[in-house]
Design a binder for these strands. Sequence first.
DNA 1: CAGTGGTCTAGACCACACG
DNA 2: GTGTGGTCTAGACCACTGA
Lengths: 238, 238
Amino acid sequence: MANFPFQRLQSDLAELIKKTPAGQRLPSEPDLAKQLGVSRATLREAMRSFETQGLIRRRQGSGTFVVGKVQALDSGLEVLESLETIAKRMGLEVSISDLNIESIVADEELSALLGVPQDAKLTRVRRVIRAESRPVAYLVDILPEEILHIKDLPADFHGSVLDCLLERGDLLTSSRANISAIGASADVAKPLEIQRGDVLLHFHAQLFNAENKVVDYSFSYFIPGYFHFHVVRRVGNG
Amino acid sequence: MANFPFQRLQSDLAELIKKTPAGQRLPSEPDLAKQLGVSRATLREAMRSFETQGLIRRRQGSGTFVVGKVQALDSGLEVLESLETIAKRMGLEVSISDLNIESIVADEELSALLGVPQDAKLTRVRRVIRAESRPVAYLVDILPEEILHIKDLPADFHGSVLDCLLERGDLLTSSRANISAIGASADVAKPLEIQRGDVLLHFHAQLFNAENKVVDYSFSYFIPGYFHFHVVRRVGNG
DNA sequence: CAGTGGTCTAGACCACACG
DNA sequence: GTGTGGTCTAGACCACTGA
């Protein structure tokens, strides 16, 4: 018995996943745990990283499946584009699910972020973005109702609030995005069909119009393996 | 007994941490688990997110401590600056530890990334960056030996390879950084004094000189709570 | 040395998918 | 119903800290 079960386990798992054809189901967790000589808890912990890399997908009630090589959505951060636009350019299919549109009221935090009075009415749009039928991102946009009323959203809304505003002719200039990493909370883990605590890349951003007013505040959660975000950084004058 | 132990647990923990003075030790894990009516495994899972937020710090053998409010290092991604430069501008103390400088040989991957022949000699610099004595980032730079030989590093090297090259007068233009999120591997968890699997923000970047040659390839791992990275994104012409 | 966090185990019960 | 992954428990052993 190795002294470091976890390291061994990860390489064993990597090998197993590699040699399993795409779409195939892995042995069940209890079986696999026995085969690999570890407890189920340890096995599950080791599987997490493979899931955030997009190599496997677990589905409650049905099993854990090996995923074929995924084409990640590739985007430079200097330009703000919708995921739809990026996907289209790359020739990928994306769709949305779990669409939820609600009218909410500004609390202290939102009133500060959006520059509106407290208790102002807001529109919140939440949805899951899927690439090749897999959930890959969870997006939440919050806008003042004057900017976007629930009724303003087209019946065939297909995922991007940004594209909606642009098509309408709104003059938008830029977005300020904060970039972080978080563990998935229960709220976001469920729609993304991942485990609570799984690693996510997280943006929260303010979108500005030509008058420098905030028209949209958004939270975005990305499953890392499905995205390649990059940015070119100028070297500061030394 | 609540049906959702975890949610309750997280808010109970948040409250406990809030009302505990900075620097104070929390009860031990077995004690706390009993107090809160959960198993130790569940308690530890719930504590993870507070650690990546920089609210608590766990030290093996001594205990879990509440951390006073931290001033995060704030940086725009348009400009590449060393963490040292950022910290200095903000009036924060940073130091380095676990400095390791080695000569290595290019494998296939590194030869492609750095644009050097396979088996070329490279210099690798690894170190932990600490802010107010806490580990907050783990940085690895890899450069061709012609660019930076081990002997070229000053005896008083204090953390930034970028600053080193700039002070020497190298003409550097820009860096291309890829941004992702990962769970900490054992290798990086140990020097950062966090748990394996904890959430980290991850950059890997190529640094270019005036001739558009790659002079440095770097991996960076950041504990999310100690950093605020942001970027201004131009709205793509719709 | 006693007490702490770090890791792992074995087993239980649940919610969900599918036949 | 049966089998899957999702969650939680109770307890063990280890490595480390600090008196």
